[in-house]
Design a protein around this nucleic acid. Structure first.
Lengths: 189, 189
DNA sequence: CGCGACGTTGATTTGCCTCAACGATTGTGG
DNA sequence: CCACAATCGTTGAGGCAAATCAACGTCGCG
């Protein structure tokens, strides 16, 4: 999912000093495809999704981010190339935005920052690896159950069609999967 | 794919000072599932693959690494948990191994190291994101063509069945895809 | 109250997997 | 140097999980 990286101690104070709070209404966009990302955001309250839009109009959700998660596009921020992903608030949300420039400065001046950042990226990469393995080896039902186990918070707060989009299946398929789980309650609630 | 991160300048010299060269024969394993990873490896010469083995015996290739690439499992090295991925030499290879401990030390003592490492992880995470998008939006043919465009080197050096495994399709499917591409030469060689 | 989004259910299609058999290539030991 | 085995890629037939297309009930909101 997103980068977790729940900053702590004086590090948090530092982030706060260069971060600007921003409120988002439900449905409001924090980033648009085509832009060069100038900020990363730390979610204080609420829930957001990252998604891409294909030419044919289909949406694909890449990740969710709730309280305590980071949402950003470091690769495109660093290379100064237009991103292709949208960030949208699913719930009314409050985020702290830190500019890409400030983040670079912190990496250079505060040794611990770069390390902590690297740890977050490690987790992100590992999470994506798990996603990839799941998509290779599992059926839609297995993957939905893993999702429930890994992210119970999101399962409760995210509309079903968005979960389907994140899992990479059609909404109808997820509906049928859930029906089967309800009829034949799988071991491990 | 793997982390690219082609170290340069005095940074390279530093890595060399703590790295031990290791030769690998074709088919030899550099890491086994179940182990706690103690090293990361920089590929000097040759070609390796990272894969997992399912209970049912099926293999899934997660990435390839040729000259100039890093191969490691930082998440499991850091958390000291057993990895589930194998590293195997596809060609006779030469790698430089750096211990996880030395790497940690370098991150703490050399500011630039942590930053460079973070950049590599960014690229890795971005590459996996592209893989995920491809698996969501594309057919087997589209994904094979993207693979050819993105990693022409690998396409030439990796056996076809391993490319199929990396793409997440059956070998037979990839064979049929290639036949169609040959019959009806797609635009964009 | 009526509209639109969401979830559900059914019918049909389809892309890919599985199973199976067959040349071609590699490489290994006699 | 050659026979043999093993691996690899190819091709065909059949099946299956999930996508697609379509219709319907429900809920929340204007």
């Amino acid at each position: 999912m997103g980068a977790r990286h729940p900053l702590s101690d004086e590090h948090a104070a530092l982030v706060r000093s260069v971060a600007k709070p921003l409120k988002l209404a439900r449905g409001q966009l924090l980033q648009r495809a085509g832009e060069i990302p100038e900020h990363s955001s730390f979610v204080v309250q609420g829930l957001l999704r990252a998604y891409v839009l294909e030419e044919d109009g289909r949406e694909h959700i890449l990740r969710f981010a709730a309280e305590g998660w980071w949402l950003g596009d470091p690769e495109h921020a660093h290379t100064r190339t237009p991103t292709s992903t949208f960030f949208e608030a699913i719930e009314p949300s409050l985020v702290l935005r830190i500019s890409h420039r400030d983040h670079e400065r912190m990496m250079e001046s505060i040794p611990g920052h770069a390390i902590a950042y690297a740890r977050g990226l490690q987790r992100l990469a590992a999470a994506r690896e798990r996603w990839i393995l799941g998509s290779m080896s599992g059926t839609a039902e297995q993957r939905y159950r893993e999702f429930l186990g890994a992210y119970p918070t999101f399962a409760a707060r995210v509309p079903q069609r968005m979960i389907a989009s994140y899992l990479g299946v059609a909404p109808e398929t997820l509906s049928r999967v859930r029906r089967q789980l309800a009829d034949r309650p799988g071991r491990r609630a």
